[in-house]
Computed example of a mutant assay.
Amino acid sequence: MIKYTLVCDSAHTFEGWFRNSDDFEAQVGRKLVLCPTCGTANVKKGLMAPAVSTSRKREAISSAM
């Protein structure tokens, strides 16, 4: 599963979960992805920060267990 940050043409942001990028594109193409705030189907992917695992994060998780 992939979590995307989505943005509608009115600049409302929300999240959506999809099996893969093709699934997202297919649903947007069929106008199945709607903004929960205004209901528009004019939705695109927003900017997303990558989930990066650093050695410091791994060390903190390991020491917490």
Rank of each mutant, 00 (worst) to 15 (best):
L6E: 00
L6F: 05
V7N: 04
V7S: 01
V7H: 00
V7L: 15
V7I: 15
V7Q: 06
C8V: 08
C8R: 03
C8Y: 02
C8S: 07
D9K: 14
D9R: 14
S10I: 06
S10P: 00
S10Y: 15
S10C: 06
S10Q: 14
A11Q: 13
A11S: 15
A11E: 13
A11R: 15
H12F: 03
T13I: 12
T13C: 09
T13L: 12
F14A: 00
F14C: 04
E15Q: 06
E15P: 00
E15V: 00
E15Y: 00
E15I: 01
G16S: 04
G16I: 02
G16Q: 08
G16E: 12
G16D: 10
W17Q: 10
W17T: 11
W17K: 05
W17S: 06
F18L: 10
F18E: 11
R19C: 08
R19A: 06
R19L: 12
R19N: 15
N20F: 03
N20K: 09
N20G: 09
N20H: 07
S21M: 07
D22S: 12
D23S: 12
F24D: 02
F24S: 03
F24R: 14
F24A: 04
E25Q: 09
E25T: 14
A26P: 00
Q27H: 09
Q27V: 04
Q27A: 13
V28H: 08
V28Q: 08
V28P: 02
G29N: 05
R30W: 02
R30N: 13
R30Y: 02
R30I: 07
R30K: 14
K31S: 13
L32Q: 13
L32A: 15
L32H: 11
L32I: 08
V33Y: 00
V33G: 03
L34D: 04
L34K: 05
L34W: 01
L34F: 03
L34N: 04
L34S: 01
C35Q: 06
C35G: 06
C35F: 05
C35R: 02
P36N: 01
P36R: 04
T37R: 14
T37A: 13
C38S: 07
C38L: 12
G39N: 07
G39V: 01
T40H: 02
T40P: 02
T40V: 12
A41Y: 07
A41K: 03
N42D: 15
N42G: 10
N42Y: 12
V43Q: 02
V43G: 03
K44G: 11
K44S: 08
K44I: 09
K44F: 07
K44N: 11
K45F: 05
K45G: 00
K45S: 06
K45C: 03
G46Q: 02
G46S: 14
G46R: 03
L47M: 14
L47G: 09
M48V: 03
M48D: 06
M48S: 08
A49K: 13
A49C: 10
P50E: 04
P50T: 01
A51S: 10
A51T: 13
A51D: 10
A51Q: 13
V52W: 06
V52F: 09
V52T: 09
V52P: 00
S53M: 15
T54Y: 09
T54A: 07
T54R: 09
S55N: 06
S55I: 04
S55Q: 09
S55M: 12
R56N: 12
R56M: 05
R56F: 15
K57A: 12
K57P: 01
